[in-house]
Each structure stands twice: as structure tokens, then as C-alpha cells.
């Protein structure tokens, strides 16, 4: 019996085309806890990213930490077959996700894709000739936000969780959603525009997000307004405030007395305040608590917390 049948790495890797899956399979036991990404690039070595270290698969099936030698290259046909499997052979059904650059898989894993963009009126409507696939292995760290939750649960005002890519913003946000909706008994609307938080597949959240009302795939600003009108939330949680539209929706949320918890890409306060569209929101005090994460080497760990500009103990 396959002992790794239900493990996260196996679940994510099962969308690889059979030849690549067979090559990786013997290493599942050693990589299970540390593999973060499986990367396929056309005519380039297949690699497995484990934090700061990257392993390559050789043609004989062993792992190597050198990027040269007899390495297994991802053929175009491997990428195409993997892409079809990622889409469950139904590309048309994942069109919106493909246009956004990634597809959510069963188990909450994500397959990032890139190739040649097909544009219509300056917006991406499709990606053709896929050249790279990045399988990101989702890991739920239940309880990773407990300390943060204790520090912010009785405070008022919005919360912005900041960090560099892969620093664990989404993981912390997901755990906060679970804690606020269960331990905190709050009515939480979870805006999951890109399917990263609840990772809903066929209407079923793949991650534990407690008792949240999940707005899956809705444009963020639209969902915030609709949540206010329809779900009477006490807390609205969404990831990545990234556009002026999101900022104006955040003001509406605050003016309705609803707490907003969101994330943003920024390593430091300086970097955060340099982002023009966020300045108005930050200066107005809508997001009174700023949380900074340590970085990709220590994903999910909190570095600093600021409340109304004052630094709190992390």
C-alpha cells in the first residue's frame, strides 16, 4: 500500500504527468515535510524547492542539489500533460483561474502557470504555450496565528499583515479566519478572490476556515460591498489589498463599523508607506494594526506588530 497516499506532497504531485510523478515518487518520504514547490520549466531541469535549498531530479531518479549533470528535463509534452491534469482535462472550466495565473487544486495546492498571454482590451483572457508550472504545496498550520489572535482580538480597527512573498501571510490570515469565526464567535466574511484562503473546489472549502462565509472568486471590492449588504459580518477578511478599488472598499467596510483584516506585500513599514495607493488608508487609521512577518526562511513567524504607530512586543 502506498503510505504516502494521503500526504500533502503526494496530493499535490498527483497532477504531474505520469513519467515525472514516477521519478519523484521514491522521494516523497524524504521531501514530505520540507518541499514547498515543484517547478517545471520547458526544457529545463525539474526541481523541488525546499526553503532555501533546491533539489533537482536526475534521469536515474535520484535527487541532486547541483543544477548541472544528467538531470531530468521537463519536455513540452510533460508540461502540456501536467497542465491538462491540473485542469482535470477541462481547460474551459478553469479559464478565469488560468487568466489569473494559477489554478487551485484539490487540497488547496496551487499550480502557478506562465506562458504567452492572450490579451483582449489590455486584460489577459488566456495563457497559451505554457512554459512553466509551479506547483505550490499548501500546508495548513493550524494554530500559527494563535498568539497574534490573542493580541488583536480585543483591539479595534483593521489589521494589515505584511510580508515578502512566501512569508506565510496567507497561512496566518487563514488561521485568523478560523480563530475569529470559531473561538471568537464572530460573523466572518472571507473574501477569497484567488481561491488561496479557503481553496474551494466544487463548492467545498479544502482548508479549515472555521465558520466563515466564503466569497469564492468574487472580485475583492465587489465582494466586500456584497458581504456588507448580505451577510452582516463583524469581520471581513481578504488577502492582498492591491488596487485603489480595494482601498475605497476598505473605507466602506470601516465606515460600516466592520473590522477589516487584510494582507499586503511589504517587508517593512518604510516599504509599506511607499505604496502610494495604500498611503491614504494607512494615514486615515483604518488599518490601525500593522503586523510584519519575518520572511520566507521563517514563514508564518511574526517579526513586529505596530498599533497606531506604536511598536508592540511580537
Amino acid at each position: 500500500m502506498n503510505t504516502y497516499e494521503n500526504k500533502r506532497l503526494n496530493q499535490a504531485a498527483s497532477c504531474l504527468c505520469p513519467p515525472l510523478y514516477r521519478l519523484l515518487f521514491p522521494h516523497f518520504a524524504s521531501l514530505e515535510d520540507k518541499a514547498q514547490e515543484i517547478r517545471l520549466r520547458v526544457n529545463r531541469p525539474v526541481s523541488v524547492a525546499c526553503g532555501a535549498k533546491t533539489y533537482f531530479i536526475t534521469n536515474s531518479g535520484s535527487l541532486s542539489d547541483l543544477s548541472c549533470g544528467d538531470l531530468c528535463l521537463a519536455k513540452r509534452s510533460d508540461i502540456e500533460a501536467t497542465f491538462q491534469r491540473i485542469c482535470n482535462y477541462s481547460v474551459y472550466a478553469r479559464q478565469r483561474e488560468i487568466s489569473n495565473g494559477f489554478v487551485t487544486l484539490s487540497g488547496g495546492h496551487r499550480a502557478g502557470i506562465c506562458g504567452t498571454a492572450v490579451l483582449n482590451d489590455k486584460s489577459i483572457v488566456n495563457i497559451r504555450d505554457i512554459t512553466s508550472i509551479n506547483l505550490r504545496i499548501a500546508r495548513e498550520h493550524r494554530g500559527c496565528a494563535v498568539d497574534l489572535y490573542r493580541q488583536i482580538k480585543h483591539k479595534s480597527g483593521g489589521v494589515l499583515i505584511c510580508g515578502e512573498p512566501c512569508s506565510g501571510k496567507t497561512t496566518v490570515l487563514r488561521d485568523l479566519a478560523r480563530l475569529f469565526s470559531t473561538d471568537g464567535s464572530a460573523a466572518v466574511s472571507l473574501i477569497d478572490e484567488r481561491g488561496e484562503l479557503a481553496a474551494t473546489v466544487s463548492g467545498v472549502p479544502q482548508n479549515d476556515v472555521g465558520l466563515c462565509d466564503v466569497f469564492d472568486g468574487y472580485p475583492k471590492s465587489f465582494a466586500m460591498e456584497q458581504a456588507l449588504r448580505t451577510m452582516s459580518p463583524q469581520v471581513i477578511i481578504c488577502d492582498e489589498l492591491g488596487s485603489p478599488g480595494d482601498v475605497s472598499a476598505a473605507f466602506k467596510v470601516q465606515s460600516c463599523g466592520v473590522r477589516l483584516i487584510a494582507t499586503a506585500h511589504a517587508r517593512s513599514r518604510k516599504e509599506l508607506f511607499e505604496r502610494a495607493f495604500l498611503q491614504k488608508l494607512l494615514n486615515s487609521g483604518v488599518l490601525s494594526t500593522l503586523v510584519f512577518l519575518r520572511g520566507r526562511e521563517r514563514a508564518g513567524e511574526i517579526n513586529e506588530i505596530f498599533l497606531n504607530g506604536e511598536r508592540l512586543a511580537a
Binding site: 491538462q84 485542469c87 482535462y89 477541462s90 481547460v91 474551459y92 479559464q95 483572457v125 488566456n126
Partner: peptide, 9 residues
């Protein structure tokens, strides 16, 4: 079947 976007299908 299933290999292209909705319009293509």
C-alpha cells in the same frame, strides 16, 4: 474535448 477555452470548445 476539454482542451481549450469555452469559445474554442
Amino acid at each position: 474535448l476539454g482542451k481549450t477555452d469555452t469559445e474554442g470548445q
